[in-house]
Design a protein around this nucleic acid. Structure first.
Length: 458
RNA sequence: GCCCCCAUGGUCUAGCGGCCUAGGACGCCGCCCUCUCAAGGCGGAUGCCGCCGGUUCAAAUCCGGCUGGGGGCGCCA
């Protein structure tokens, strides 16, 4: 693998808000942000974007756990510290208020006494009287009794704002279409628009990768950076994932959380990363790890259209990942946890090799060990499977998968009845199970005594 | 309603005016192999490059309109 370029001056960040477990969409953005930084040898900063405490539903630790489960790491963050802390936006309010004062003094922001929209849902659902564009709030610039003002960004009266996005290319908008967004709420807390820009500037962030739902806010953010006297970071907006039907991905669906995918469904994190991080790029024929992806990563190659999240494709990739790339250690650990019965070291070793090419997830690996939990009572149909076939197999020494496979082949030679006899073998070893590991793997895992018990004549 | 963005087989995409009667991968279908499920081998189908116009000797590639989809228009992020 080529040596990664090392440029510590590149600083990228991921700034999740604790409003829910990471979904496949969030995870993809985080992955792309991480790859962008790592591909250039830069530093990755994790910042908690907790500007809206009312909507918080998960802990910061949950988010770290999800990111960690994916295999991401970070150099600075609210949990590991760093030179630019604190890394929780809520702890930077004093700084935000001081910046707000500067912006007012410099004429870049003004107080607006228009009462807040009372019912947002009605406002969103109904016919929209809201107008985009500047000057819509300037009607009530003077103090009004009983109204706490909101601080708004002042947008220039004429001209265009131009900025180059690393994914979308040149963005050029008329200021008439740029609304004067809120920077500070009437209760004195900053909004995302202010906090995010200030924090990025303060933390020396040079590269921002975020969801395309922020693209429309980019002009305002450019204005804020300029007013701050800070360099505008390089922005890369990533198209949002859409659902199977091409419609928007519902965040309500619990099965879209990566925690559910990894923990409940047992999708290997590496497969999930390979799938999510490759969406929007030309598909690779290999199955790269994150590090391997980082060596050739260029977010400029990301497609601009919204890719569909396809669970079927994820499963196909997961199957390949388990067969080709998953470590035996990890597979062994997952098998122990997910098998319905306690497994010995020998059984784990046999099963790891015996099941890895035939499972879509770790959960399925556990299911394949199900035959071990069955009763060892006799079940062989002697009319199909004779003693002179079973005896040599049971006499196999050493009792290991390879020797057993050879013994089975020798005892049941190719012929018209081979299929039936081996089928009877399976029925005796794993009665009632539709899917099992191969015969020799089951025999090896059961051990000679339990195998003999199950193969005893009915 | 207004503003912004996007549009190649089922999916992810290559393609940046002639090399394209559009390439790859995944999926799908068939055959082989086969103790189930997989894996593996071999072969196959699937796109009037969303639609309509224009520019050009030449367009998937450039321009315009339309349609569809996404995003935004909030003292949410």
């Amino acid at each position: 693998m080529p040596e990664l370029t090392s440029d510590p001056a590149t600083r990228g960040r991921y700034a999740p808000s604790p409003t829910g477990y990471l979904t496949v969409g969030n995870a993809r953005t985080a992955l792309l942000a991480w790859l962008d930084v790592r591909s250039r040898g830069g530093r990755f900063v994790l910042r908690l974007d907790d500007t809206d405490t009312a909507r918080e539903s998960v802990s910061a630790a949950d988010i770290c756990a999800d990111l960690d489960a994916l295999g991401l790491d970070w150099d600075e963050g609210w949990d590991v510290g760093g030179a630019h802390g604190p890394y929780e936006t809520s702890k930077r309010s004093d700084r935000h208020r001081a910046v707000a004062d500067d912006l007012i003094a410099g004429g870049a922001a003004y107080w607006d006494y228009t009462p807040a929209i009372a019912d947002v849902s009605a406002h969103k659902a109904g016919r929209r009287e809201a107008k985009a564009g500047r000057n819509v709030h300037r009607g009530t610039p003077d103090a009004v009794d009983g109204v706490d003002p909101v601080l708004r960004l002042r947008v220039p009266d004429a001209g265009r704002i131009e900025v180059v996005d690393r994914v979308y290319g040149k963005i050029s908008v008329d200021v008439a279409d740029v609304s004067e967004v809120a920077l500070m709420r009437s209760d004195g807390r900053p909004t995302y628009h202010l906090a995010s820009c200030v924090d990025d500037a303060d933390m020396g962030v040079t590269s921002v990768v975020r969801g395309a739902d922020w693209l429309n806010s980019l002009p305002q953010h450019v204005l804020v950076f300029r007013a701050l006297g800070a360099d505008v970071p390089a922005f890369a907006h990533v198209p949002l994932l859409v659902g199977k039907d091409g419609q928007k991905l519902s965040k309500r669906q619990g099965d879209l959380s990566i925690r559910h995918l990894i923990v409940d469904e047992g999708v290997p994190a590496g497969a999930l990363c390979a799938y999510l991080a490759n969406l929007g790029f030309e598909e690779r024929s290999d199955l790269p790890t994150l590090t391997e992806m980082a060596s050739t990563f260029d977010i400029g190659h990301l497609g601009k259209a919204s890719p569909r999240y396809d669970p079927k494709k994820l499963e196909a990739l997961s199957r390949r990942w388990l067969a080709e790339r998953e470590s035996s250690e990890r597979l062994a650990a997952e098998l122990r946890v997910r098998a319905p019965v306690e497994l010995s070291d020998e059984q784990v070793a046999v099963l790891v090799d015996g099941v890895r090419t035939r499972i879509p997830t770790f959960a399925a690996a556990g299911d394949l060990a199900g035959f071990l939990g069955l009763d060892d009572s006799p079940g062989r149909d002697v009319t199909v499977l004779a003693d002179d076939v079973v005896a040599p197999v049971l006499g196999t020494r050493p009792w290991d998968a390879d020797a057993l496979a050879a013994a089975i082949d020798a005892a049941v030679p190719a012929g018209p009845d081979r299929k039936a006899r081996l089928g009877a073998f399976r029925d005796a070893l794993a009665p009632g199970l539709r899917v099992t590991p191969p015969l020799h793997v089951m025999l090896a895992a059961l051990g000679p005594d339990r195998a003999a018990a199950r193969l005893a004549p009915t």
